[in-house]
Amino acid sequence: MTSTTTRSRTGTGAGAGAATRGPGLGRKLTRLTVFAVIAAVPPLLFDSYWVFLAAQVVAFAIATLGLDILYGRTGQLSLAHASFMGVGAYTTYTVSSYGYGPAVQLAAVVVVAVVAALVVAVPTLRLSGLRLALVTLAFGELLAWVIRNTTDLTGGTQGASVDPIVIGLLDSSEPVDAYLIALVPAVIATVLAAHLGRTQLGRRMLAVRDTELAAESVGVAVARTKITAFLLSAVYAGVAGWLYAAITGFIAPPDFDLFASVYLFVAVVIGGAGSVLGAWLGAAYIVLVPELFTLAGQPNLYPIVGGALLAIVALVVPDGIVGLGRGIGRRVRRARDGQEETA
């Protein structure tokens, strides 16, 4: 029996299946092909507005992948994830206003995101669940307050125009170029997040999420694991903010407020916590579904329908869209499992 059949029988995407070995070569090629085909659709078939949205999906996917590391795998509830996107976006704005290009911007974003994450994570080590969420919320409000009161530096409530990223022939003010520019870090972020499930680091996170007692009993440093997850998630969010700023060309405090953080959280839950694919589906959901409602002339319906959908997902399919698909797959497979195992 090959690794492909055994792998698919495992638990959450966070690590269960991926624990032994990576996917086999055949499966890797299949995934690569599927990804390439899907990735090629927007620039080839869509008009430029939808390519612009697709680029945002790609940027948001990096953010949801990061939140999935923190919430889906490590079980830490943060309501400041959009704020960390904001940290990335405003760092980009500041650095680019001095005339520095994308490489310097990215480096600055990573450094500032790490520092900001340490500021939030270290004092909150003993908190978890709702109490942690409340403190992260306070951080988000603090950041919004800082931006509102530093109009000279950040544009304040009026927002700020951000220069496009120019790399060679690509210019992020062109939707197709923005899409292509965003795709590269997003692919790297995805591959690394998927690989995390095959590392002890990733397993530590799952252990901290599920049973801190067992984690400690084998020597896992619970606090250090939480901080690492927070740092990784903040860097992911920061990079997403960097791309978001470049793609939209304009940033303002509401882009990164509490509601934005809640939407990222919704994305992770609806897509499927603990799953790389779920993070992508969630990102597509929070960017595209509001557009569909606007297109249908009913933009006000989105919060209502979205809220109802979240409630349904939380109650009926706690593992999100990915979990739903897996559940069906498992049921189908269970029927033929017996034969396979004796074969």
Partner: peptide
């Protein structure tokens, strides 16, 4: 080990055992 089993319920057997390699 614990009297009341403490495992990562939604993960695979292998993942649960590999946690133990932390040492």
């Amino acid at each position: 080990g614990f009297q009341t089993v403490r495992l990562l319920e939604r993960e695979s057997v292998l993942t649960n055992v590999l946690i133990g390699t932390e040492r």
